[in-house]
C-alpha cells in the first residue's frame, strides 16, 4: 500500500514538473476554462432569460446554477486527472507500447491511470467556485455543513464512476483499437450532465441514472448542497458506484488478459 502511495507521489511529481515546464499553458488553460464556463452558463441565462419564461420544472435559476457548478468541477476532474492518463493507454494500445507498462512490477491499471495529470486544470476549481458563489447568492443562503459533507462524498462517488466508465471505454480499446473518438463520444454524452436530471424523461432518464449515471454525478451533489437529497439516494449511489467500479475492474482484467500486443 505504501509502495503505491509512493508511486502516486512520484507520478504526481513528474506531472508537476511537466506542468512547470509549460508555464505558459497555465494562462491558456485558465483563459479557456473561463471561456468554457461562460458557455456553460449562457444557456441557463437563455432558459431563465425573462420573468415570463417558466424555466426547468422544479429548479429555480440559482438551483440550476448549482448543478452547472458541479458540472464544471467534475469536468475539471475529468479533463485534469482522468482523461490524460487514459488517453495515454489508448496510444499505448495502438502503438503496441503497452507491453512496457505491463512488464513493470506494479498493477497496470494503477500505472496507466496515474501516468499523467494536467495540473493546470485545477483552475476549474476557481471557476466552479465563482459559479457556486453566484448560485448561492441568488438562492439567498449558503448550503448547510451536512449538505457540503454529503456533496463531497458524492463528488468522490462521481469521480469513481467517471473513472470506472473510462476503464470500460479503455477495455473497448483492446477490441476495436481505434477509439480516439469513443473518448470524444463519452465527453459529448457527459455534456448532458450540466442540466438537472429532471430535464430528461422516460427511457432517457433511466439511461442517465443507471447506465451512464450522470444524474448521480451532478444532480445528486447539487441536491445535497440544496439540502433535499433523500438519505436513501445517497446510500444507493455509494453502493451503486462500488458495484460499478468492481465490474469495471473485472472487465479490465479480462481484456488485459486478451491483450496480444501490436501485430498480434
Amino acid at each position: 500500500m505504501t509502495r503505491y502511495l509512493r508511486l502516486l507521489g512520484l507520478q504526481l511529481r513528474t506531472s508537476a514538473l511537466l506542468a512547470a515546464q509549460y508555464r505558459f499553458d497555465f494562462f491558456v488553460d485558465a483563459a479557456i476554462s473561463l471561456f468554457w464556463t461562460a458557455t456553460a452558463v449562457v444557456p441557463l441565462f437563455v432558459v431563465y432569460g425573462e420573468e415570463t419564461r417558466p424555466g426547468i420544472p422544479g429548479w429555480s435559476f440559482g438551483e440550476a446554477l448549482v448543478v452547472t457548478a458541479c458540472f464544471i468541477l467534475l469536468q475539471g476532474v475529468l479533463d485534469g486527472a482522468i482523461n490524460p492518463g487514459l488517453q495515454a493507454v489508448i496510444d499505448h494500445i495502438r502503438k503496441g507500447t503497452l507491453d512496457f507498462v505491463l512488464l513493470k512490477p506494479a498493477d497496470a491499471q494503477f500505472l496507466v491511470s496515474t501516468s499523467r495529470f494536467m495540473l493546470w486544470r485545477v483552475f476549474s476549481l476557481v471557476t466552479s467556485g465563482i459559479v457556486f458563489g453566484i448560485a448561492f447568492h441568488q438562492i439567498g443562503h449558503g448550503p448547510s455543513v451536512l449538505g457540503v459533507l454529503t456533496a463531497l462524498v458524492l463528488f468522490a462517488v462521481a469521480t469513481l464512476l467517471l473513472y470506472s466508465l473510462w476503464i470500460l471505454i479503455i477495455s473497448a480499446a483492446f477490441i476495436v483499437v481505434k477509439v480516439d473518438n469513443l473518448t470524444y463520444l463519452f465527453s459529448s454524452i457527459f455534456d448532458a450532465a450540466r442540466w438537472p436530471s429532471s430535464v430528461f424523461r422516460g427511457a432517457v432518464k433511466f439511461f442517465f441514472t443507471f447506465v451512464i449515471p450522470l444524474a448521480v454525478m451532478t444532480t445528486f451533489p447539487a441536491e445535497a448542497l440544496l439540502g433535499r437529497l433523500a438519505p436513501m439516494t445517497l446510500v444507493s449511489s455509494i453502493g451503486g458506484a462500488f458495484v460499478f467500479a468492481a465490474v469495471a475492474r473485472r472487465i479490465w482484467l479480462r481484456s488485459i488478459g486478451h491483450y496480444t500486443s501490436a501485430g498480434g
Binding site: R53, N181, L182, D191, A192, V199, R201
Partner: peptide
C-alpha cells in the same frame, strides 16, 4: 461514432421541450 457524438442538439431538444411543457 462521430455522428452519435452529436448528442447536443438532442439533449437541448429534450431540455427545451421540458421547459416549454408548462407554457
Amino acid at each position: 461514432v462521430w455522428v452519435f457524438a452529436t448528442t447536443m442538439p438532442l439533449i437541448m431538444m429534450m431540455l427545451w421541450t421540458t421547459v416549454a411543457e408548462a407554457s
